[in-house]
Design a binder for these strands. Structure first.
Lengths: 233, 233
DNA sequence: CAGGAACAAAAAGTCAGACTTATTTGTCAC
DNA sequence: GTGACAAATAAGTCTGACTTTTTGTTCCTG
């Protein structure tokens, strides 16, 4: 499930990345490669590779004679899955969650509309299967089962949209949904209205009704936004 | 304007990255670090750093005893600005342009609606200034001047939305707009209707009319989509 | 005192070579 | 065929020496 924990440099990243995104090193802080290498007990080569990756994420900037400078948050590659994961695990988790939910509310309705036009028969079948799975797990504290089908549902929609940019948001949406279930206050059972909406979206997509699919999905995302407002007004 | 051309490893990236995104090495291809280092005439350390960056973009995967494998396009980090730039400069530029325009059509209307609620007085002023600049350059082959104000306009909207994920799409949108002017067939002068819409959006944002700002911006993005359909049906 | 040129120090950048380790593949016995 | 064992291979790691760029200081001059 996780990504780059392989290799020594990956281990360093998994420690240094979250520290930076959590604001442990505020923007403008200067790190020295040699000192970092010592503190992580790795060679300079390994540390340099880690710094290069952080640099490609625009988290830091490496300059001669000055060192490795932490960049302001506004320049970070906030769409990088790894950065998203680090931030979701750290201090500004709430802000990140809100940003991502707003992004969802913009993207998913359009994606659903496109899915209604482009979804294959197989994808339609998969979609109804997911919706049924959600219904089956919507009562009696079966949150894990519900979550799995929920994540799969939205992933299928995004893939079926036929847009590669949308498709790549599947992981992000899954992360948001998982976060809601695992970390935030989750009501005992999911909102029955939301479950119904998912079933209806599956129907609309199968029927090729783009307008209806878009509008129903918008209702789902509006619900997700309201849920956030309740938790953090 | 460009990013990582600094250092030897950056130079290697600017050559190897576009080659991969252009499909010069099809998915599944296996590269060897040592051979690459030789062919680029750099040391292995430098080549390893370059490979690490490509790996963090999910363009390749490095495994022991097998080499550096090119990953399928569906796994690439297509939101990475560098990857976007490489793809826009290469073979699948049309597909990339279409994906990004669809993304715009999803994001920008919502962003405009949020901007109407959150924009500061300064941002409102900037916005009308941009719109006026577009009007002033809308006739008489002043495409460059028009483009500059167009890019600035959309960047202000995205920033004023108050959502960091939206804000980071400013560069992407700018790239799309610039591409349309520089590479695609651009009509002599911009569509007068589009110019008017921008002015009206600026007004709506200043007035705090979120619904109107969203709907007007949707008209703009619909126009952009239609423009694409005309060019590549 | 201002301004600039020369110089010194600091940190990243680069290279080369030796060594380690994981993974695959092939082989041989059972 | 299957299982274990051995060899080959390419990435991974470490170290030390060297280069290059940038910054800050010093000192000289107008």
């Amino acid at each position: 499930m996780s990504t780059s924990g392989r290799g020594l440099h990956g281990h360093v990243l998994e420690s240094l990345g979250p520290a930076i995104t959590a604001g442990e090193y505020p923007p403008g802080s200067v790190l020295r490669t040699d000192e970092l290498a010592q503190s992580f007990d790795v060679s300079r080569s390994v540390m340099r590779e880690a710094v290069r990756v952080l640099e490609s994420m625009h988290l830091v900037e490496s300059r001669r004679r000055v060192g490795v400078t932490v960049r302001p948050k506004s320049e970070w590659n906030v769409y990088d899955p790894q950065v998203i994961r680090w931030r979701l695990a750290g201090a500004d988790r709430p802000q990140q969650l809100r940003s991502l939910t707003v992004l969802r509310s913009a993207v998913e309705p359009i994606a659903a509309g496109l899915a209604a036009k482009h979804a294959t028969a197989e994808q339609c079948a998969e979609l109804t299967e997911c919706a049924l799975g959600m219904v089956a797990n919507s009562r009696g504290h079966r949150l894990e089962g519900y979550l799995i089908h929920d994540m799969a549902f939205h992933r299928v929609i995004l893939n079926a949209s036929g847009n590669e940019m949308f498709a790549r948001l599947g992981d992000v949406v899954a992360e948001v949904l998982a976060g809601r279930t695992h970390h935030e206050v989750m009501f005992e059972d999911p909102d029955p209205a939301a479950v119904t909406l998912h079933v209806q979206v599956a129907e609309a997509v199968r029927a090729g009704d783009a307008v209806r699919a878009e509008s129903l999905t918008r209702e789902i995302t509006v619900g997700a936004l309201q849920e956030l407002d309740i938790l953090a007004p």
